[in-house]
Design a protein around this nucleic acid. Structure first.
Lengths: 157, 157
DNA sequence: CAAATATAGTGGTATATGCCAGTAAAATCC
DNA sequence: GGATTTTACTGGCATATACCACTATATTTG
């Protein structure tokens, strides 16, 4: 209908991010998704891999995701045998998330494909803007940002 | 668990955008969502308002969203009487999307709240980085970007 | 220690979003 | 003009994600 520059919605940061999110998920999934895993699932697997057997709680925090949302998202991965939950020794409420061997193998496989997608991204946007963007987005995703956003109340916080 | 800077996932653009998307949806919704509409729905209403009675197809394109996804997303809005679909005169396949009076009124209401959220965002990130970010995201969301991404051969890594 | 409170997860419900397989109405091609 | 192809949408199914209410387990308090 018209180009994004003409679009009033370039004004809304939240919409902008969501829209870009749809586009990138699409693009990355076209490359990564062949095996049947979506980009979100891949990033979850990777986060689990590097997360030192995180509890669901801490995993959710790292993903900036609601705990129950994480739980739901994990279900298909557990069902398909890529991930397992093990009760924490000390705290019987907590369950730690861990990759199965199959999950690890799949993750390793996908890393290669991810690299391809990521390098395309860097190539198209330019490596500098690309890194700058990720820094900015990391800040936006941080707890500091959320706190500042909430405090920046109209008059005296 | 750790700060986002420590996170290997700062390396993935797609995850970064998704994570930021969750954070911002959350933050904006806390301000906008009081009346019961989510940010996504608000941006949809606004896009419809400015879209000159778009067909679902063109609306989906503007939103960088799958057509069927748009259809699903519109359902609750139609059910709640904020939006209506009118068959196109010329092309009987097409249906144009239009705000009802209730929808327009609600949209207008929410614009005020949105402004508050947006100004907080600009305040926390800084207006310049904020605008730069939106420009970058608009580019990422564009068809040009998608084409370039798809064309950029693997040689480029 | 028992009661009150806080924390970690689970399950239900609802929206968000995508893919695929139809259906119906153009548009195109003999 | 009828068969083929393309286009615009619909419906079903699956994942993504959030909120709320509930349960089980810890932690804090009196």
């Amino acid at each position: 209908m018209d180009r994004p520059e003409d679009n009033i919605w370039m004004h809304c940061s939240s919409s902008s991010v969501r829209r870009a999110s749809r586009q990138l998920s699409q693009l990355y999934d076209d490359i990564i998704g062949g095996i049947g895993l979506r980009g979100t699932q891949f990033s979850l697997l990777t986060q689990i891999l590097y997360g030192n057997e995180p509890t669901q709680k801490s995993l959710a925090e790292a993903m900036v995701m609601d705990l129950s949302a994480l739980g739901h998202t994990l279900k298909p991965l557990i069902r398909d045998g890529l991930v397992e939950l093990v009760p924490d020794e000390k705290d019987r409420r907590a369950k730690r998330v861990r990759l199965t061997d199959v999950g690890s193998a799949l993750q390793a496989d996908l890393v290669e494909k991810w690299r391809e997608a990521q390098s395309r991204f860097d190539a198209v946007l330019g490596i500098e803007k690309s890194e700058e963007l990720r820094r900015t987005l990391a800040f936006i995703s941080s707890a500091e940002f959320a706190q500042a956003f909430e405090k920046t109340g109209k008059t005296g916080d």
